[in-house]
Amino acid sequence: MKSRVLNTVLASSAIVLAAAGMTVGPVDLPVGEMVGQLFAGERSASTIVFLELRVPRGVLGLLVGASLGLAGAAMQGLLRNPLAEPGIVGISGSAAFGAVVVFYSGLAALFSLALPLGGIAGAFVGVMVLFILSGRQASTLTIVLAGIAVNAFAGAATALALNLSPNPYAAFEIIFWQLGSFADRSFEHVLFAGPLMAVGWFMLLWRPGDLDALSLGEETAASLGVSLPHLRFRIIAGASFAVGAAVAVSGVIGFVGLVVPHLLRPLVGFQPSRLLLSSALGGAVLVLAADIFVRVLPTATELKIGVVTAIVGAPFFLLLIYRLRQEEV
């Protein structure tokens, strides 16, 4: 399938879902009346709900989904392994730890950019540790094991930080950090996390051909003019920015970076470079769809979005591992 066609379909779906998501919520908004008010620039309870709650939620879903999908595709291209995914390899978990430390220490209250930067720093450390543990082109087993290690440590550290926080509510909020949610997010979150996610996207989408060359091995890639140290740094830093800022405002939403690239890979001829943009768009589609799902589900408390992506993603993950182990044999 031509990239243009695929990306147009994905982008349109994302826009449709974002718009649909803005019509979903606990309150029934009088759409006609509200649209009129919006155009007239009037302010009412409905427009406030729409502009300050629904729209930021939709925008954030789009940005976070794109970041997760893109980071997943880029990491898989770099590590040459379809199991590399920010959640599985522990980058999201490390980002959560970074964000939690910044948030509960009160730093985030001092200046709001501190929160996504904390997430980015945490993500960066997580990636570095992963690389040290698993090496440059690791086998499936090594990557999964390294990811387990990073996740275990990051998760424990996060729980510890939350329990040590003097605020009694902190310990209960671990559910947000580990399962993710877009509830009650505001435009402020979009404003301070959005640009940092965009920095990550820029780094990940720059020179996509490098990842293509890498599919022939490091030596061939180097002979084709790819600077391997630069590439590695770019992907690591880019994934840290994108995932770090995303997790800082939405908690850990797992499996997006696994499911989306995997589904789209055959549609882009398995080419890592083409997969990047498509995965970003596909990630946005998946997250927006999941966010609509948690809001229409008739539960007393809104379900955390990470639960939905895990229910979809975990079986996927197991299937992938199974297939890859067969191949490695």
Partner: peptide, 11 residues
């Protein structure tokens, strides 16, 4: 709950 202690909830 407590003065000057941040929590997600307070957000």
């Amino acid at each position: 709950v407590a003065e000057d202690l941040p929590s997600m909830a307070d957000q």
